[in-house]
């Protein structure tokens, strides 16, 4: 029961992030929305991992109870690292763009640079 609620909330986070990406006009806000979305995805991995049990999967002699699945957690670590490096890279790009496009509105940037 609780698991379903958590899952629903996590999916709502992903959607919120995605709507932010669509509806926010400012490039920095778009990047922040993307971060919200990626937080949602990461949380979703953790939720899926905890289906079997809640204990942290650490190898010890005495078994405490049902362990969480270690694989999704291990996998999502990679995604977290990749996510924040992309985030950092984009923000550096935005800093450079901000010099000539101080409002950082994507429509304006696109108009003055490409189309």
């Amino acid at each position: 029961m609780l698991g379903n609620w958590v899952e629903a909330l996590v999916l709502a986070t992903i959607l919120c992030g995605f709507f932010g990406i669509i509806f926010k006009k400012n490039l920095v806000m778009k990047i922040v929305s993307m971060d919200v979305m990626s937080t949602g995805v990461i949380a979703y991995y953790v939720v899926v991992a905890s289906r079997i049990g809640f204990f942290t999967p650490i190898l010890v002699d005495s078994q405490k109870g049902a362990y969480a699945d270690p694989v999704p957690q291990a996998v999502i670590l990679t995604a977290i690292v990749i996510g924040f490096s992309i985030q950092a890279l984009m923000l550096v790009g935005v800093m450079k763009l901000a010099r000539n496009n101080p409002t950082l509105e994507t429509r304006e940037i696109e108009k003055s640079n490409v189309l």
Partner: peptide, 22 residues
């Protein structure tokens, strides 16, 4: 500025797509 914007667009679009993929 132009190349930066083209690159940023590319990275942004592909990263959002990869989040769905995940």
């Amino acid at each position: 500025d132009r190349s930066l914007w083209v690159a940023l667009r590319y990275l942004f679009i592909s990263n959002v797509a990869m989040l769905f993929y995940l």
